[in-house]
Structures are given as structure tokens and as C-alpha cells.
């Protein structure tokens, strides 16, 4: 059976959660997406940007899953891409493999703080969408 993507109301609530999370220092935008690359909710990213982040994020999450499996390490949890200008973290939401969150942060973000806050955000989203 297919889990359909969350209904409109849940998506609106998810957007509120992301909005609160957007207050974390350095966070530029955040996109919650389905494992097959559709945006579910986003914060501070326009429609085109969040659609692209959702697609690329889903590929990375799937590659992370394949790599962790190949290495015998179990399930994918998160990955962080660090670059000159900042970092992007992709974190699984909840225990199912159906959703992940992508967060773009600037240079001013402290990675440890960012990961901690992202984890909290993912827990809140999981409670909301992945009972």
C-alpha cells in the first residue's frame, strides 16, 4: 500500500514548524520533501527553488541509503554537504523512509548547533506527519 503525501492541513502545520525552525542562526531556507522528490512544505524558498532542492535532496538521501546499506551500516540518517559558503544538511524525518528535510545554512551557522536544531525540527515534523 502506498502512503500518500500528507494532506493540505498537515502541510500547512509542517510549514509552521519550519517557520519556527527558520529562526535558528544561519538557516537560510528549509524544504521538507517526499523520498521521491516532491516538496511537502518549505520555508524561505520560492516554488522553483524548493522543487529543485526537493529533487536533489531526494537523490542524495537515496544515495545515502544505498551507501549505508552497501557498507552494512543500516539506515540512512543524515548527510551534510559543507562548502565555502555554508552547509546543506539532509536529514531523515521519522522512522519511515518516506520523508527528509533539507536545510541550507550560511557561513554564520555553527554546525553542531545547526544539526541539533535540525534534529529537533525533524522530531517535531515526524510527530506531526509520521505517526
Amino acid at each position: 500500500m502506498s502512503k500518500v503525501r500528507p494532506a493540505k492541513l498537515s502541510r500547512e502545520l509542517a510549514r509552521k514548524v519550519l517557520e519556527g525552525y527558520g529562526e535558528v542562526a544561519g538557516v537560510q531556507c528549509a524544504v521538507l520533501f517526499s523520498s521521491d522528490g516532491f516538496e511537502i512544505a518549505s520555508h524561505a524558498a520560492d516554488a522553483a527553488a524548493s522543487a529543485r532542492l526537493a529533487a536533489i535532496g531526494s537523490s542524495l538521501a537515496a544515495l545515502g541509503t544505498a551507501l549505508a546499506g552497501e557498507a552494512g551500516l543500516g539506515d540512512f540518517e543524515r548527510t551534510t554537504i559543507e562548502s565555502n559558503g555554508g552547509a546543506v544538511t539532509i536529514m531523515r524525518v521519522g522512522s519511515s523512509r518516506s520523508m527528509s528535510l533539507a536545510v541550507v545554512a550560511g557561513k554564520d551557522a555553527v554546525l553542531g548547533q545547526l544539526l541539533w536544531a535540525t534534529q529537533r525540527c525533524c522530531q517535531a515534523l515526524a510527530k506531526l506527519l509520521d505517526p
Binding site: S34, G37, L60, A62, A66, S98
Partner: peptide, 23 residues
Amino acid sequence: PVRTEVENTDRVAHAKESTTVGF
């Protein structure tokens, strides 16, 4: 083969259960 299959949530586009999102 290495696969990157996930659940297909867009059954309008195609009825199959899973789809490749990496390679």
C-alpha cells in the same frame, strides 16, 4: 546492481510502486 528505489507517490504519472531517484 546498486539501486536507489523509493516509494512512488505520483501514481498519476505511473502506477508502479517504486521509482529510481538516484541511479
